[in-house]
Amino acid sequence: MARRKRRAGHSDLVVDEKKALHRIRLTINGEELELAFSPRRTLLEVLRDDLDLIGAKEGCDGGECGACTVLIEDRPYLACLTLAATLRGKRILTIEGLAGNGGLHPLQSAFLTKGAVQCGYCTPGLILSAKALLDRNVAPTEEEVKKALVGNLCRCTGYQKIIDAVLEAARLLQAESPGNR
């Protein structure tokens, strides 16, 4: 059916001179990459289809659900609405790059201990939206947490445990921060 963005010759498999592949360099999860793709493809498609970074999910492909949320220069973006070609030189973080060497980021630990996950489809997007919040606000109120997550739908949990988890992560991060040692 009519996927708004999946139409009109987006395929990388059909290459003609009017539609030469676009080449850019960018950083994804700390790794500098050079990528080539059709200029009309979205970041979500490039992440999932070309780079096998499947943590960002497609829930609507239209900017309505937040399942595809990733961080670009530390701010949350909907990867399904972001043309990959616009990201020259940008720094992108997906859920796969959140915690180094097999450990967990405090947000991930808090999601686990607070029971904030059911089917898990919304989880990567929610964790990244929450990270963007905690990066700019170390001690958010419950209201601030809710507002920061308003772009992310979750159909399983009813949100309360997610909100609890984000507040818990804020506490964990504060306890970890050098000023408190």
Partner: peptide, 21 residues
């Protein structure tokens, strides 16, 4: 008892494997 979920380690790190993956 409120045992922690066994599913979570993969789901919170983006390693869940859904059909579109």
């Amino acid at each position: 008892t409120p045992v922690k979920r066994k599913e979570d380690p993969r789901l919170i790190t983006g390693q869940g494997c859904y059909v579109d993956d």
